[in-house]
Amino acid sequence: MAESVFRRFSQQITLIGAVVLFVLPLLGIPPTTYLTLTLAGLAMGMLLFLVASGVSIIFGLMDVLNFAHGSLFAWGAYVGFTVFSLLMPWVEADSLALNLAVFLVAMVTAMITVALLGILLERVIVRRVYGNHLFQILITFGATIVLVELIRVFWGPNDEVMRVPLTFRGNWDILDVIVYRYRVICIIIGLLVYGGLLLILKKTKLGTIVRAGVEDRDMVQAMGHNIYLLFTGVFAVGAALAALGGLAMSLFSLQVYPDMGGTYLLFAFIVVIIGGLGSVTGSLVGALIVGLTYNYVAYLVPWAAAGVNILIMIIILLIRPTGLFPAGE
């Protein structure tokens, strides 16, 4: 009974929930701090979106829950770390052009390397277990162990410090609100990726076929499209996004460590459960919710920060078991 009430008013409840989420923290946080936290939350949300969107599209199209996504994220961070180490003079140069260049080189290298890794993973491992959720989870979990251990073999087991390009460091002070430059960059990257994904999915033929495949794989095949090629492609794109997320996150948290994927994979799972598996917009909304609440709560009640997202996830599951934006709606 309570459930049907929830279902009927789910839209309104979600709206009220959103308002509460954004406004309630103001009661306990001074306005300028609130704005700084909001920016931090948005930046973190955008980075989570990069990881979660890959998980979400891969699940939507291929019906594969990729537990190895977190390790691809870590690989992206480490490849980026290597590029930064090799081009350290560019990182430390007081020149926006050189800083941007090193960031772009690192980004492209990380995305291509990890996309290739993703293709390998899909072709060699994941392809053998299509249609069997249990084995998919097991096998991608196994792949995670291998990929994380390989990081330890290649880069060593210790944490490494990630240096942010010089002109990306520091902050602007706008009307007493502290605006960190790198956070703004993160928000811009997230928006660009979101816009790009939407453009591809809605405006190109390939994107339309992917969306059709999310709804009905068999029918797309019966219409003459090579679904397996599509799977590999989508897996590679998801992996590349994870790599971008990993690189951006390592600059956000100023470090790389072999197990970093695990933590963010969890965040990604929470995000896609909140947002709805298979929806890019759902991933964005879910990621922003998680990013914002995490930052507000970490300021107000530090020890509860890890739990509050799980709490939100549970509430969403009770109200809308398929998430806020189910695929195909």
Binding site: R211, A212, E215, M219, A327
Partner: peptide, 11 residues
């Protein structure tokens, strides 16, 4: 086997 979330054109 209609793709319900796609428009007629996209189908």
């Amino acid at each position: 086997g209609i793709f319900a979330g796609l428009t007629v054109e996209e189908n």
